[in-house]
């Protein structure tokens, strides 16, 4: 970034629900300060104004799911000094990656009367499958305070303080009683990365995996416990198959359970 000049920010959208970029607009108390600290070069959800690249920081929401997306993400990468993906779609392929397990033509036929109008890939994949990504921010949706931390870090050229440990650690740190131990509620917390503020256990609900696998998880051990708690193989498999269905450890564990189920 040139001295004295504001860093230029771009926000890009691929296949997604818009919720992660909305997190930026949901920073009601910080939005104007963020807008003061950067030059918004491209952010379609917020402004018509566009400044041509290159961009100092690009935030990328959404997964790659069409032939056009593949070309577009290459262009975004070429124009971006730092590329940060935001949310489960961009970092793992999102809920729409459930199609990776099925015949996409059957999906198109199920939803659309004229499948020939639809241009789509057979898979929904994360941005990092296609271009180099400098940082991946997890969540479905992302946590807005983690987003501010990542932006702050990028603006100051430091490493963001985003823990890769499990939800369990977060529950312990906040004094939330374990819902699985105390109440026998199935919970993905032991294998899921922290970051949401352990909101589900706080609501007496098991974690359902919005932030994807934690570092070095052991899902096979967790699946054993989930089965003991009364989930059947199909329910356990589906537990891993949601917003991060295509994230390595979740994908592999659900495939393993499927092979047992036959």
């Amino acid at each position: 970034m040139a001295a004295g000049k504001k860093p230029r920010l771009a926000v890009w959208k691929f296949s997604s629900c818009d919720g992660c970029q909305l997190s930026l607009l949901d920073c009601e108390d910080e939005l104007l300060a963020v807008a003061e600290a950067v030059e918004i070069g491209f952010f379609l959800e917020a402004t018509r104004a566009q400044v041509a690249g290159p961009y100092d920081i690009s935030l990328v929401e959404g997964s790659i799911s069409t032939p056009r997306d593949i070309k577009r993400i290459q262009k975004v990468r070429r124009q971006s000094r730092v590329l940060i993906t935001i949310g489960a779609c961009a970092t793992s392929g999102g809920i729409q990656a459930l199609r990776n397990l099925s015949d996409v033509d059957a999906f198109v036929n199920m939803v659309y009367a004229h499948p020939e109008f639809i241009s789509t890939l057979a898979t929904s994949t994360p941005i990092s499958d296609h271009v180099k990504v400098d940082f991946e921010l997890r969540g479905c949706p992302i946590d807005k305070y983690q987003l501010l931390e990542v932006l702050n870090a990028a603006l100051n050229g430091r490493k963001p303080d985003i823990p890769a440990h499990s939800q369990c650690i977060e529950c312990k740190l906040s004094g939330t009683v374990c819902v699985m131990v105390a109440q026998g509620i199935p919970c993905l917390g032991p294998v899921t990365q922290a970051g949401c503020g352990n909101i589900c256990p706080g609501c007496e609900r098991g974690c359902y995996g919005c932030f994807g696998p934690k570092e070095a998880p052991n899902p096979a051990a967790l699946s054993g416990r989930l089965l003991e708690l009364g989930m059947d193989l199909r329910q356990t498999r589906h537990f891993y198959r949601s917003f991060n269905t295509n994230a390595g450890a979740f994908r592999d564990e659900s495939a393993r359970l499927e092979s047992i189920d036959g």
Binding site: S15, S65, F107, V108, M110, V111
Partner: peptide
Amino acid sequence: HEPPRFFEALLRGRI
């Protein structure tokens, strides 16, 4: 050009 996401299809088989 928002890419299709096939929600109606991917719900089938879920509880």
